[in-house]
């Protein structure tokens, strides 16, 4: 058996995790995730969390502000990796919690949990920088393929990373997808991870180049057809941390404060209680510090990206 508590402690300190340990963590995680459906059933009370993007220090703040995994049930809506400088540690920490407290934590796949996107947006480079080869990246990508595509809370709240798909309008249809693969460039699985809500009259092309834009009409239809009252999703930066749309039928939750160490936004998590009441907790970015309290510039990059 692996000593998960010890690995968790190392991760929280930002210590290097041996390749062999990562390999076994990933293997065990796949075994566990394999048994989950495309749409996991989750009970209340539960706290819904949006994009993390490798901002490990902010992930630790998130747990601190929302009760911690020992006492609280969590759903993470994906985008654990890329952009931030601690994608690997953030993802492994969530996997460790998942293995240690399987009923307490649900992980949903985001559009960044793919081979193609992580090669462009930083996770691949981070692993090569930290290990000198890409093995650990490959182990993680194998886990990505097993992550759920959604979750449903008390049969009333549908959780997904991006949004809806014109190809599949019921949760039961979504359950039939063969999800154990790299995210395709089109089709329902792609749309669930890429689509965005917008003030549009009908399905429209997404400016991101994948997925669709959908409007109030599509959301209302989905809610009615599936007998749910809310779609909770992440995927879009919201400067205020969360944003309800379409008369409260959809909410975007964003959990990466000061996104990319640059955007100046706050972050939020959404707690759903047994009566399905919504309670938002807002939190801000903290500056990583070393043992003597000096600010650590959390980067191996020589600079932040600006137009100069």
């Amino acid at each position: 058996m692996m000593d998960l508590d010890k690995i968790i402690a190392s991760l929280r300190d930002g210590k290097h995790i041996p390749e062999e340990t990562v390999f076994r963590l990933c293997l065990n995680s796949q075994e566990l995730l394999m048994n989950e459906g495309n749409v996991t059933q989750v009970d209340t009370p539960v706290t819904i969390c949006g994009d993390i993007h490798g901002q490990l220090h902010d992930l630790l703040t998130l747990f601190e502000k929302s009760g911690g995994v020992e006492k609280t049930r969590y759903i993470f809506l994906g985008d654990f990796v890329d952009r931030g400088f601690y994608s690997l540690e953030s993802f492994l920490l969530l996997l460790c919690y998942k293995l240690r407290y399987p009923d307490r934590i649900t992980l949903i796949r985001g559009n960044h949990e793919t081979r193609q996107i992580t090669k462009v947006y930083g996770f691949y480079d981070e692993v090569v920088r930290k290990y000198g080869n890409s093995n650990v990246w490959r182990y993680c990508c194998e886990v990505f393929d097993y992550l759920s595509l959604g979750a449903i809370i008390n049969n009333s709240i549908f959780c997904v990373h991006g949004g809806l798909s014109p190809d599949m309008t019921t949760v039961d249809e979504i359950r039939t997808i063969d999800r154990k693969q790299e995210v395709p460039h089109e089709g329902a699985m792609c749309d669930l991870l890429w689509s965005d809500p917008e003030d549009v009259d009908t399905w429209s092309l997404s400016p991101r180049g994948a997925g669709f834009l959908f409007g109030k009409r599509e959301v209302d239809q989905f809610l009615e057809k599936n007998n749910v009252e809310l779609i909770a999703r992440a995927h879009q930066l919201v400067m205020e941390g969360y944003k309800e749309m379409f008369d409260g039928g959809l909410v975007t939750v964003w959990s990466a404060p000061n996104y990319c160490y640059r955007c100046g936004n706050v972050a939020a998590v959404l707690k759903i209680d047994d009566d399905l009441n919504r309670e938002y907790t807002i939190f801000e970015a903290v500056q990583a510090q070393n043992e003597v309290g000096n600010a650590i510039i959390p980067t191996k990059k020589s600079q932040m990206d600006y137009f100069l």
Binding site: I117, P207, R208, G209, Q236, M239, C263, G264, N265
Partner: peptide
């Protein structure tokens, strides 16, 4: 759009 997937439009806006 055909060149690269843009992962975050809101960030571009900010």
């Amino acid at each position: 759009r055909s060149l690269q997937f843009l992962d975050e439009l809101e960030e571009l806006k900010v």
